[in-house]
């Protein structure tokens, strides 16, 4: 394409391209192993490796890896206790896995020549949709049909119901969309900015040192955003869970 003629042309979107590594088809469904799946596997292995390394010794005075494991456990446990309460403990394994997976996906994506899994809307939307369906089911299981009462706020006159109820339902359906778009947009924007600035360095020759300095700062910011977005995704999951368990707010 155009990049073959001009090697210096900036192509910030190229890093998000999906390529098939192994063609697998079942019937008409394409379930090929792509570079996206490859990095999901790498993320999972990295998390498992970290926890096996950290929890193999179980010493009273922890080493660095054990500290990381204990800190992350405490972080999520406190988050759940603060946002959901004691009932939230049942959902700890899911929330912890979710946080670690998104956090590691974001971090591994920052290493050059890697692929950012969370920069694709379909991945984040699959997460958010699954959480949304799960939380709705939990709401109905724990509260029965009384869960439907949240679509009809108290004190609203009955003739307003035909308008208010669809509005509340649409508002409820917005949750997974805004949740997934936020994570995806942050990852996409951050990685594109890094690529564009990297292109400036090549174009400006010696004076490229100025965008290089900017790039270092942006990269540091991206590391922070990688954590922050995983944290936001997790805390919103906790809030939705809390709404499902205690709907009278």
């Amino acid at each position: 394409m155009a990049s073959a003629k001009e090697p210096n042309l900036i192509d910030p979107i190229h890093q998000f391209a999906i390529s098939k590594l192994a063609d697998i088809k079942i019937g008409n469904i394409d379930i090929s192993f792509t570079n996206s799946s490859q990095f999901m596997v790498i993320t999972t292995i990295a998390i498992m490796f970290l926890f096996m390394l950290g929890l193999s010794k179980r010493s009273i005075i922890p080493n660095r890896f054990q500290m990381i494991c204990e800190l992350s456990y405490n972080f999520i446990a406190n988050l759940l206790r603060a946002n959901v309460g004691e009932q939230g403990r049942d959902y700890f394994p899911f929330v912890f896995t979710l946080f670690m997976f998104i956090f590691f996906c974001n971090l591994i994506g920052l290493i050059p020549y890697t692929f950012t899994v969370t920069s694709h809307i379909i991945v984040t939307f699959a997460f958010a949709g699954l959480i949304f369906i799960g939380v709705t089911l939990i709401g109905f299981v724990k509260n029965g049909l009384g869960y439907l009462r949240m679509f009809y706020p108290k004190g609203v006159p009955i003739y307003m119901a035909p308008i208010i109820i669809p509005i509340e339902i649409i508002s409820y359906l917005t949750k997974p969309v805004s949740l997934s778009v936020r994570l995806m947009a942050n990852m996409l924007a951050g990685h594109s900015i890094i690529k564009i600035f990297a292109g400036f360095i090549v174009m400006m020759g010696f004076f490229g040192i100025i965008p290089l300095a900017g790039l270092v700062a942006i990269y540091a910011l991206e590391v922070f955003i990688a954590f922050l977005q995983a944290y936001i995704f997790t805390i919103l999951t906790c809030i939705y869970l809390n709404d499902a368990l205690h709907p009278h707010h």
Binding site: I170, S171, T174, V177, S178, R182
Partner: peptide, 18 residues
């Protein structure tokens, strides 16, 4: 700002989708 924008766009999008 991002949060507020996404909220409004997503709601309109879902409404039109339905």
């Amino acid at each position: 700002v991002m949060k507020l924008t996404v909220e409004i766009v997503a709601a309109v999008g879902i409404g039109v989708g339905i």
